[in-house]
């Protein structure tokens, strides 16, 4: 089915931009509410845990707990905003709003749509992640200018989680199924991925699992950057996030082709 694959792959390197711009136009109309909504949750966690828990736990890995937590919250907010943009908003555009159906009647392919949606979700992740970084920086919890290295990592993290969520979305018959992904995958990842506390305190079995999680790779890249420390195994972590982006992209394209173009 070479022909079928052509329909599921991007037709060229720029078609996806039209999909991104469609989402940007829709977002612009509700931008203020969207930004506040995106920011509130991770900022509440940052301050509640950072100050509340920070008093009890003292310094972690040689940094104040809130500075340690800041990188985790940047990664976690990139994870959740990219995921939610995909499983709720993009799913709606595919399923009930029928936007994808309209686009499939044009010169865009299914692959162009998927790529445009991933790029848009990564954009949302970037907005959410950088907003928290800015707040944390203003309060003096991040190191400059090394924090700038975090920006591309946030984008890559957004791509990886959007791509994974695209597979979940491709398989889900309705919105009701997404709660399983949230509670059984994302929430444990928040803790096993080292976003909230150092995984070195966990039993070794959990540490082994945690090592493979995409959030762990994101945190391991973001934390040194935000704390102004040299990164370790940078190539490995970037490579892992790239694999988490590319493989699910192909899988979701195959699944969505079966679903939408039977």
């Amino acid at each position: 089915m070479v022909e079928g694959w052509a329909a599921a792959m991007p037709a060229n390197a720029w078609n996806w931009i039209a999909v991104w711009r469609r989402n940007y136009l829709a977002w612009k109309k509700i931008a203020i509410a969207a930004i506040l909504g995106n920011l509130a949750d991770p900022l509440i966690y940052l301050f509640a845990l950072g100050f509340g828990l920070g008093i009890m736990v003292g310094p972690v890995d040689g940094a104040s707990y809130i500075a340690f937590l800041a990188a985790g919250m940047v990664a976690a907010s990139a994870m959740t905003s990219a995921t939610f943009e995909t499983i709720y908003a993009a799913f709606g555009r595919m399923h009930s709003q029928r936007s994808w159906e309209a686009i499939l009647c044009t010169q865009l392919t299914l692959g162009d749509i998927i790529l445009g949606e991933l790029a848009w979700a990564a954009t949302k992740a970037f907005l959410a992640g950088t907003a928290i970084m800015i707040v944390a920086s203003i309060l003096g919890y991040t190191a400059w200018p090394s924090a700038l290295y975090a920006l591309p990592v946030v984008v890559l993290t957004g791509f990886a989680f959007a791509s994974l969520a695209m597979v979940v979305m491709a398989l889900a018959p309705s919105y009701d199924y997404f709660i399983f992904y949230q509670t059984l995958v994302l929430t444990p990842m928040l803790f096993l991925g080292g976003a909230v506390f150092p995984v070195s305190h966990l039993p070794s079995a959990f540490q082994q699992v945690g090592r493979f999680l995409p959030l762990a790779h994101a945190v391991d890249l973001l934390r040194p950057a935000l704390l102004g420390r040299p990164g370790e195994s940078v190539g490995l972590h970037i490579g892992a996030l790239c694999i988490y982006t590319v493989l699910p992209f192909f899988l979701s394209a195959a699944l969505l082709r079966r679903r939408l173009m039977p």
Binding site: A26, Q97, R98, S99, E101, A102, C105
Partner: peptide, 10 residues
């Protein structure tokens, strides 16, 4: 198409 797929917020 048979079913309306306009962008309703636009």
């Amino acid at each position: 198409p048979q079913f309306d797929n306009l962008e309703h917020a636009f």
